[in-house]
Design a protein around this nucleic acid. Structure first.
Length: 674
RNA sequence: GGCGGCGUAGCUCAGUCGGUAGAGCAGACGGCUCAUAUCCGUUAUGUCGGGGGUUCAAUUCCCUCCGCCGCUACCA
């Protein structure tokens, strides 16, 4: 029996589980059950990431130890997984002893090999981001540096020593591996992203922190703790007894499938394989990258308050309905869109009207015409044979799709067949056959064919519809849970039919959903399932209000949309942009950059650095002493390693040549433009 | 700015290695009554993002423009 080892990311416990976590984990569970159906010996791992300063702090805030906080959060996750019928084989916590010691073992091994070295780093460090400031970030006149990620000034030199992983040495080996295993990352577009990332060159990675106490101590150097990725990614092997390289490890490693959302691709597809190469371990076979769930076309986020809490769905829908919707509605790789209308529609149409109703009308007729028990044989025509043949064709096609994790397309085909069965009932008209005693054998043949078809289809649905498939199996007394056309005997009885999927009344649902204050309880960031959320040092989550999604206001306006108001903004929108007068104190060209000028400006309230792409047209000395207009509240961004805290306003012609408005000498510095 | 992808019925999407397009949902009409007012059949609509080119013929190939998404950058 072939083995199959699959994993979800371990979820960071700074937040309660949201729909993104649920999606990843349900997907994993569906794959597990499907693989079992195909005869694999499956091991399914999930868990939680519990280390880091963030946990340390929020625990302190609540008067708890980090472990106590983690324990409470872990309970949330495990409860939800149980409710959603997730059957994992192991739940790893990074605070587990087996993990801590396992990480230390890998660390030591890589260090002995020489790929982890003690760096003599004496630069700046940002405490809040737990990150080093690269040397390319220049010092301010006061000897401070600004963190490129959060914009906070810092002159901390706490990280004078830390350990680095020699990632730079693995670029070629990674590229070779990608070339030989083009299917390593699925879908292909994600593989391409990884390849181009590696081709741009890799820098060594700091893998420890002396500032973080809540973590795995570095062996032989307890002042240092192992940092995020080295700690977290290792769970995939520590959980299966890497520590003593026990039977489970020897049996299941390498993993056959790592599942994750797109935001942690780089860490899994670049760092993780490199770590494993360094440790001399085989690499995982495949990584499946899925998209995020959008809510009504918009990204879910705490700030938008549109995060979807699985618990609210569970109040109205069965776990099967939720599992079905998530698997049916999004194709792997693309972002899925979640709307309550779409959800209700999908569940009512497919599950209630088509599938449950098919079961219901079949059981109803068997009860009515045969008192739930078939005695004697049946008459079978070409049509009945075609139903069986149709199932065999269906199963072949569906297995091919499921093998590629294309559950949405497989389910689509299954429901085409369900429709075929409903049509078959109309074509054969059992209620008319029942009127004439002479037709009894044919009537029996029709209904028994339906039983066999339903029992067969039910198996295909069983990885997704865990509860109802068990019920259906009971009703039709089909003992064999395996695949294939179910050859039920000629004489058998069925159980009492039940209502598999109660119809959800959308009006009632919305009335209730509007009334319940969804936001408060479960406000969380709802990227897909992310291993680390805020532990990702350079996660680059795009700012919410920025280009991607229209703001609520502008959306509403365009919806209301007469032509006259199209594209117009409210005065409140305008006021969000703080434009002020600033004086240029100093200007210089940025090294190794043709177009960039670095400016020091006085904003009236502070002195800050701006970088502007104007070097082709303005000389530094032209600008010094001038009063210009800047956007003060623009999110800082690093350009060429320099943090730009704002933006110069300039007119721009068709060739992108800038024309900077220069204000009169007497304009007060810091004056607001409005 | 670079690389990649996308833009097809009111909605969600499939598809065409060139011969003017489909599936589900929503809509309209009809049929059945076994079933959770469910099921089955018939059916309207699309200048297949705009423009140009190659061709007997383009939605499908090429160019260009517009819009959107992803990664990335000396956009901020």
């Amino acid at each position: 029996m072939e083995k199959f080892y699959l994993t979800t990311p371990i979820y960071y416990v700074n937040d309660v589980p949201h729909i993104g976590h649920a999606y990843t984990t349900i997907l994993a569970d569906v794959i597990k059950r499907y693989k079992q159906l195909r005869g694999f010996r499956v091991f399914f791992l999930t868990g939680t990431d519990e280390h880091g300063q963030k946990i340390e702090r929020s625990a302190a805030k609540q008067g708890l130890t980090p472990k106590q906080l983690s324990d409470a959060m872990v309970e949330h996750f495990q409860k939800l997984w149980a409710t959603l019928r997730i059957e994992y084989d192991a739940f790893i916590r990074t605070t587990d002893d087996i993990h801590v010691r396992g990480v230390q073992k890998i660390f030591s091994r890589v260090m002995e090999k020489g790929d982890i070295y003690l760096g003599d780093y004496s630069g700046h460090y940002c405490i809040s981001c737990e990150n080093f400031i690269p040397d390319s970030v220049e010092e301010t006149p006061e000897g401070k540096r600004t963190c490129p990620d959060c914009g906070r000034p810092t002159d901390n030199r706490v990280g004078e020593k830390c350990y680095f992983f020699r990632l730079s040495a693995y670029g070629d080996r990674l590229l070779k591996f990608f070339e030989e295993n083009p299917e390593f990352v699925t879908p292909r577009s994600r593989m391409n992203e990884v390849v181009s990332f590696v081709k741009m060159g890799l820098r060594d990675l700091s893998v420890t922190r002396s500032t973080v106490k809540w973590g795995v101590p570095v062996p032989g150097d307890p002042g240092q703790t192992v940092y995020v990725w080295f700690d977290a990614l290792s769970n995939y092997i520590t959980a299966i007894d890497f520590l003593d390289e026990g039977e489970r490890f020897r049996e299941f490693w390498p993993a056959d499938l790592h599942i994750m959302a797109k935001d942690i691709l780089k860490y899994h597809a670049v760092y993780w394989p490199a770590f494993l190469m360094a440790a001399g371990l085989p690499l995982p076979r495949k990584e499946l990258i899925h998209g995020w769930w959008l809510k009504d076309e918009r990204k879910m986020s705490k700030s938008s308050g549109n995060v979807l809490d699985p618990h609210i769905l569970l109040k109205h829908f069965s776990p099967d309905a939720i599992r079905y919707f998530l698997m049916r509605e999004a194709s792997i790789g693309a972002d899925g869109n979640f709307s309550h209308e779409g959800f209700i529609n999908r569940v009512n149409t497919d599950l209630t009207n088509d599938w449950a109703n098919l079961v219901s009308r079949t059981t109803g007729m068997i009860e009515k015409y045969f008192a739930n028990s078939f005695q004697g044989g049946g008459l079978y025509t070409e049509k009945e044979k075609e139903i069986a043949a149709g199932y065999r064709r269906l199963e072949k096609a569906v297995l091919e799709l499921f093998d590629q994790y294309q559950f949405n397309r497989g389910l689509e085909m299954i429901f085409e067949y369900v429709n075929r069965l409903n049509r078959y009932i109309v074509e054969t008209q059992p209620w008319n056959l029942a009127k004439d005693e002479a037709n009894r054998p044919h009537l029996a043949g029709v209904l028994k064919t339906l039983c066999r078809a339903i029992a067969s289809v039910n198996t295909l649905l069983s990885p997704i519809l865990t509860d109802t498939s068990a019920t259906v199996r009971l009703i039709f007394a089909s003992p064999d849970p395996g695949l294939g056309w179910k050859e039920l005997p000629e004489e058998f009885s069925i159980g009492q039919g039940t209502q598999l999927f109660p119809r959800v009344d959308s009006k009632a649902f919305f009335a209730e959903a509007e009334a319940s204050p969804t936001r408060a309880a479960a406000a969380t960031s709802a990227k897909g399932a992310t291993m680390q959320e805020t532990r990702i040092p350079d996660a680059n989550i795009p700012p919410q209000a920025a280009a991607a999604a229209p703001s609520a206001e502008s959306h509403a306006v365009s919806q209301a949309g007469t032509a006259a108001t199209e594209g117009l903004i409210e005065i409140t929108d305008f006021r969000k942009v703080q434009m002020i007068v600033a004086k240029v104190l100093a200007a210089e060209k940025v090294e190794k950059a043709d177009k960039l000028l670095k400016l020091q400006v006085d904003t009236g309230s502070d002195t800050r650095t701006l970088v502007a792409g104007i070097a082709l047209y303005y000389k530094p000395e032209e600008l010094v002493g001038r009063r210009i207009i800047i956007v003060k509240n623009l999110k800082p961004a690093k350009l060429r390693g320099i943090l730009s805290q704002g933006m110069i306003l300039a007119a721009s012609d068709a060739d992108n040549r800038p024309y900077i408005p220069i204000l009169p000498e007497e304009t007060p510095i810091g004056a607001i433009l409005k």
